[in-house]
Design a binder for these strands. Sequence first.
DNA 1: GGCAAGTTGTTGAAGCTTCAAGAGCAGCGG
DNA 2: CCGCTGCTCTTGAAGCTTCAACAACTTGCC
Lengths: 158, 158
Amino acid sequence: MTDDRSAAEPRWLTSTELDTWMNLVQVLMLLPTALDRQLREEAGIPHAYYQILATLSDEPGRAMRMTHLARLVGSTTTRLSHAVTSLEERGWVQRRACPADKRGQIAALTDAGMDVLRTAAPGHVAKVRRRIFEHLTHDDVTLLRDITAKIVPALNDR
Amino acid sequence: MTDDRSAAEPRWLTSTELDTWMNLVQVLMLLPTALDRQLREEAGIPHAYYQILATLSDEPGRAMRMTHLARLVGSTTTRLSHAVTSLEERGWVQRRACPADKRGQIAALTDAGMDVLRTAAPGHVAKVRRRIFEHLTHDDVTLLRDITAKIVPALNDR
DNA sequence: GGCAAGTTGTTGAAGCTTCAAGAGCAGCGG
DNA sequence: CCGCTGCTCTTGAAGCTTCAACAACTTGCC
């Protein structure tokens, strides 16, 4: 254990950090599963797909460049490309050519997609409430907002 | 919008809750990807598989009933069964019959699996540090621990 | 203009996760 | 002791994500 690679001994997590990390891992494993299950029952799509529809619906014109959309939903372009293909087959999204940049593609939310979103939204919000916010005080919520705000930038670069 | 189903109007998230939720969604999308990428480069396995090895290594005897293991890593039995099959093919885990309950299976970490874990651990910890704890104060860490501790139970009871 | 380098988005294969279904065993009540 | 219900775990198919590779276009530069 002494003749390690670059560092003599890696700096392990403290006891508190480890507790925090274990809780966080549980959240990472359980929350997406819970969200996926609920949305697949109500709308037939996983949470990542719902997020795409929701992000588009917030945009004026309900349309957005693929790369921009991918960044907003925290996805890769590959993943988004497959997802949009699937959503397009259901008639909930449409691809359009980008006039400013011929490489580009624009994903646009259709009326049918908007309907699906409106139908699924109440149940989704209720689930988020029941899983998260029901168990937190108002102070907890603002603290969690501030703490996660510090982490997200570090996840984005690279 | 007034003649909805059961409730007249769903209770939407407040502005603060929405900000918190958006940050949390970003974490849910980006963190697993970052962990997976690092571990797949260093050990050839996704984070969920690493978690299985790590959990087994903490257990006296380095072995555990499947259902118990699934609960600890926040997984389903189906998922775990496939994962153990894959880990077994690499020689890092072995299945054993459970003497007390003939339905049961026990997953045991092999020496080779322990080696992989020891090799991958320093890089993994470094990544967790760089992605999370480097950006938080000690108070942040304890607060995050306490807040996540309130959420995890709500995620467990389906 | 023309070339090199970087950006944008897609494709197919491989891997992981989920769902539905089922086989086998445990525990309990009659 | 028999049968019912529930628990444990597995299997195969379908769906989603990732990786590597690539085509098409833009930008910067000579």
